[in-house]
Every structure is written in C-alpha cells, then in structure tokens.
Amino acid sequence: MGDEYFFPFETVREEQDRMLADVADCLQKRQHMLVHAPTGLGKTISTLGPALKYAVDNGLSIVFVTPRHTQHKIAIDTLRDIKRKFDPGFNAVDFLGKKHMCSVDGVETMHSGIFADFCGKQIEERKCAFYAQTKKSEGVPTVEAEAALAELSSGGPLHSEELIRYGKENGFCSYELAGFLARGKKPTVVIADYFHVMHPSIRERFFKRIDKDLGNTIIVIDEGHNVPDRVRDLMSINLSSFVINSAVKEARQFGYRETENYLSAIKEIIEILANKTVMNIVNDKKNRRFSLEGLVERDRFIELVELKTQCEYSQLIKDLDFIAEEILEERKQSFIASVSRFLDAWKGDDFGFVRIMKVKSRNKDFASSYNGLSSIQENKDVKIE
C-alpha cells in the first residue's frame, strides 16, 4: 500500500492514505488543494510522494517552498527515502537565499539589499573567484564546475548545508552550482523559500535560472498560514534611523560632502513628517515603550525632498546610486545604496500599498516604510491620498 504514491515507509496510517489519494486525485484533475492537518500527520511525505509520482509520469517538475530552513532538511530527507526505495530517476536541489549560499566570508551580516549590490558588482567585474571558477561569461559551467556537478549528482539529494560546504571547500559558488543541478531533462524537485515563488521579479529570474516553466511545475507551499505575512514583507521596504544615520556617516567618511548634505536633509524631512503625521499611539506599559505611527502621502514626501535638497528626485536617486557604486569598490556594503533603494521604491504604486512613518519615542528612533497590504478589505478604513 502506498507504492503507487511513492510512499517509502512500510506502514501507511489511515489519515495518510486518505491524504495520499486526495493529493493524487487533485493532481490528476489539475486542481488546487488546501490541506489543514495537525503536526505529525506526515503532510510532507503525503504531498511530495504523490506529487513526485505524477511529475515523473508526466515529465513535470516540483517547486516545494517553505519559510523555515528546518523544513528544507525534512523535505530533502523525504526525497532521499523515496529515492532509496523507488529510485524513480529525478533531480533534487535545495535552494536558500543567495546570500546564505555565498562562499565569501563575512557576507552573512549584510542586509539582503546591500548583499545584492555587492554580489552584482563582484560578478560584473569578475572579482569573485568562486563565481569565476563556476560559471563562464556565456552562462555555462566551467570545466571544473562540470566535474563538480557530475560528482554532486551521483551523491543524491543534498541538503543546502552540504552543498554550501562543498562550494567553500572546493572554491565554487554554491548558488550557481545549485542552479546548474536544477537544470536538465529529468523531473526535478526544487526546495526553495517563499520569495523564490511569491516575489514577481525574483520568481521570473529564479525560474529562468533553473530552466523551468511555471506552467509545467507543481507548486507545493508548506506552512501556508504564513503566506500573507511573508508576502506582505516581501513587497515592503523600510528605512530606519540606523540606516540613514549610517549613510550620513558613510558619505562623510568617504568625503562626499554634497551627498552627506542630501542625506542629512532626507533624515530631517522623515523626522518632521513622522512627528506631524501621527495617527495612532500605542502605549505598551509593560515594556514602557511608545510607538507613534502615521500615514504619509507619496507626492508630499517627494516634494519636500526636492525642495530641501534642491535636486530633482529621480536625479537624486541616480546620484546616490553612483556614490554607492564608488563605495562598493572599496568595501562590501553601502548604506547609501539602501537609502537609494528605499527612495526608488517610494515612487511605487498606491494600490495595495501604504506609506507609514513610525517613531519610537523612548529612544527617538524612526522607521519609514513602503508596505504592501495583506488585502484592501482589511484596510478599508485607510485612505491614501
């Protein structure tokens, strides 16, 4: 029992048998399926088993997304059990975020946006030895990488930690190795994070990297109750007092006086707006913290920035980008790049988003956010002018 669903264990519990059949039926009918079940039921194997059977029989691939690194390991272990018993002939690759798979020491402390700038610059200028040994400029693996891929493929499904360790020990970019491993004609199971599928631009690049078509891919979403919050986070960007203060110091340190003045002006504007647009006060007596929040109009902020800096908004962003690139020539991260990225995002759509200023009065820190909303209905009392 369970062999027709690639169920690798000897005993199938009644609830598992029912779920295996339901998942298989859903796939045959090409329908969506939402599963609500208690911890310990075996949802991972009861989903991956029949999904992989259907993928192998129909030449499809699977992308299994989960918000927790521990679930990556569970999924890979499950695939190992399936391969050990059935050996159905498939590839399996475990992806984390690019920063978490990087072989360069010290990048783990970088903000994701700052790391993206650093990584892109290193690749563009061919300064990353790990990338250079892994991928040619034409986008194909090097001779050394081809040998590594053959070795890794023969070892079966690997945890991301194993692939990362292999990359560091042998001088390869683990993220690029994972991309190459995901390609090929065999049905492939890719274990990834929410953002690989939920974020529109990241999804497009990710599926291009793994050479898969979304229309021919089975998407399995683990921990589905976390999706709304995670998607909202993915579509939001924040600028904190720490980042803007660090950007001001960075400009001063590198001798960019005009940029320092621009950033100081932006900081002053945000502080003024944050205090003038307070709409809600939350008094947390237990922790003795106060939080002040208020909505801010997109155009009003842009007008104030242009007035205070005497620089057109789009040109200001370009100037900050240029300075950030200069700084990235000298070190791995730039806070000015983070400010520029925030200013650019601020110009985004109104529909489905809200712009918020937040001040913590105890230490006078602030955070300015361009946030995605979970739904328009949930925020029907919020009006963005």
Rank of each mutant, 00 (worst) to 15 (best):
L60M: 13
Q133S: 13
K53G: 05
V227R: 00
K212V: 00
A147H: 11
I237Y: 08
F118R: 01
A247M: 02
D25N: 12
G89D: 13
E161A: 04
T70M: 12
S46R: 02
A24K: 13
P157S: 07
Q253R: 12
G59E: 01
H32W: 04
D349C: 00
M33D: 03
F115V: 05
L328M: 02
E385I: 11
S340Q: 09
E146S: 02
T217A: 09
F86V: 11
H159V: 05
Y262H: 03
I317C: 01
K83R: 14
E223T: 07
F254D: 03
M101V: 09
N261D: 13
E161Q: 07
V65N: 03
R362H: 15
M198N: 12
R80C: 12
N287F: 06
N170W: 15
E125K: 02
S246T: 06
R205N: 05
R230F: 06
L307I: 07
S374L: 04
I82R: 01
R298I: 10
D211I: 06
P141Q: 10
Y262Q: 00
H32T: 08
V278D: 01
E385K: 08
G352I: 00
L320V: 00
V248P: 00
F206Y: 05
A21K: 12
V197R: 10
K98A: 14
D17M: 11
G348L: 00
F351Y: 04
A129C: 11
P141Y: 09
I237F: 05
K53F: 12
S369R: 14
K347R: 10
R298G: 03
Q28R: 15
G89T: 12
I202Y: 06
N283D: 04
E169P: 11
N91G: 15
D229L: 07
F351N: 00
D17E: 12
N261G: 06
K364L: 15
F353S: 06
D350L: 01
K267Q: 07
G113K: 05
G89F: 15
K135T: 14
I376A: 13
C311W: 02
K135G: 10
E312L: 01
L373M: 07
L27Q: 03
I210T: 05
D344E: 12
K136I: 12
Q310R: 04
K83I: 11
E10M: 08
R84A: 09
S334D: 09
L292P: 10
I123M: 12
C119I: 05
Y131F: 14
E14L: 12
Q28N: 14
F7I: 09
K308T: 05
K168R: 13
G352F: 00
F118P: 03
I356Y: 12
T134L: 07
L273A: 02
R80H: 13
L41K: 07
A116Q: 04
G49W: 13
T39F: 11
L214G: 05
K208D: 05
E329G: 15
D117F: 03
A182G: 13
V359Q: 02
E260I: 10
L20G: 04
E176L: 15
K127C: 15
L214F: 04
E329W: 13
E306P: 01
L96T: 14
S46F: 09
